[in-house]
Nucleic acid binder design. Structure first.
Lengths: 119, 119
DNA sequence: CAGCATCCCAGGTGATACTG
DNA sequence: CAGTATCACCTGGGATGCTG
């Protein structure tokens, strides 16, 4: 670390922005090509890794794993590992993530209105 | 086009997602390192390019221009060019963009709550 | 079953210099 | 004043193959 001066400066700016502006922080969390697909996949209840994968056929294993880890570390998804053979891992939304859904609904409504305005 | 098979497929998927899910479309619009800074810079009313730049000292001219064009083509910002010397260009939020602000407020509130939950 | 490791390319972004 | 052009870098994400 502390190698690339400008990059680290930028990173610090971004971190600062995320810390002071909670909306930036929130948007960071729901940004990313797969985040919403995963969130929506889980609104129905907990799912195993393989089940989740079937609901999002286009995603690669790599990205599903990466994004789930991101969601987990962001506190939007809870990951439960069962000490069994064969292994079983279940994912579910946290209460916090569930509170996000009405806001997503509003974004959807805004988006639809905005599309109409646009032509 | 039609060169890289997988990439174009992916692009199509993404476009499809944006078209069918208006929340994805909305999130796309407010995602990006500078979008919110610019939006917030303009909530007070119209500003000239240079004035806007002073409000966001860290942004480069290149990025300010690019992001403003993105916002313009997305219908969030209106750009007005005055045929004068020296040139004058003013930017202002569209009504649609203004409707977004309460939703951003909610995202902010959620973000703050979520931060508290997180430790 | 539920991942991780590796390689690789495309696109986004910064720095810098130039222009109508 | 309000941009555009060019180069160069870094990260995100895909493909593929391996493992506890």
């Amino acid at each position: 670390m502390s190698k690339t001066k400008e990059t680290s400066t930028n990173f610090e700016n971004k971190q600062l922005l995320i810390q002071c502006c909670s909306e930036v922080y929130a948007i960071e969390m729901i940004s990313g090509q797969w985040i919403l697909s995963i969130l929506y996949g889980l609104v129905g209840g907990k799912l195993r890794y393989g089940e989740l994968r079937k609901r999002i056929p286009e995603i690669t294993e790599r990205m599903l794993t990466l994004q789930l880890r991101k969601l987990e570390s962001n506190g939007l998804v809870k990951r439960t590992v069962y000490a069994e053979v064969p292994p079983r891992v279940e994912y579910e939304l946290t209460p916090s993530a569930l509170k996000l859904t009405p806001i997503l609904k509003q974004l959807k409504d805004w988006g639809e209105q905005h599309k109409e305005v646009m032509e």
